[in-house]
Amino acid sequence: MTEEDPKTSFQDIDARLRAARSREDERVTRETATAPEKPGAGAAMRIAVEMISALLVSGGIGWFLDDWLGTRPWVMLAMLLVGCGIGLRNTYRTAMRLNADLHEGIPSDQQDPAKPPED
């Protein structure tokens, strides 16, 4: 131990520390993954808020564009329609993700094929 170059022994320790850390990470992830405890309540609220915020944001963008282009109220009206679409899409995504969380144990081929990749 004493003859060893201090630099290499530090590197050795570093490597071992890293390996131990990632092993621990894997172990904990495995253990916690087997017992998913995701609160189901509040899901409805999460979904409703997606719709409202999409409308607010796209309506707001339309409002500022109208101010800038002097075309009140047309861009805002168009953007509100777009916001409806985006809100529906976000709502669908959130619902699908919540669904996927619920059926985590089920093999992937039995899940809804429309489910978007884990995001």
Binding site: M45, R46, V49, E50, I52, S53, A54, L56, V57, S58, I61, V82, G83, G85, I86, R89, N90
Partner: peptide, 16 residues
């Protein structure tokens, strides 16, 4: 559409 839905994140986070 993706861009706007990215921008809705802080709003939905705050609003909720």
């Amino acid at each position: 559409i993706e861009l706007i839905s990215y921008l809705t994140r802080p709003v939905s986070l705050a609003l909720r």
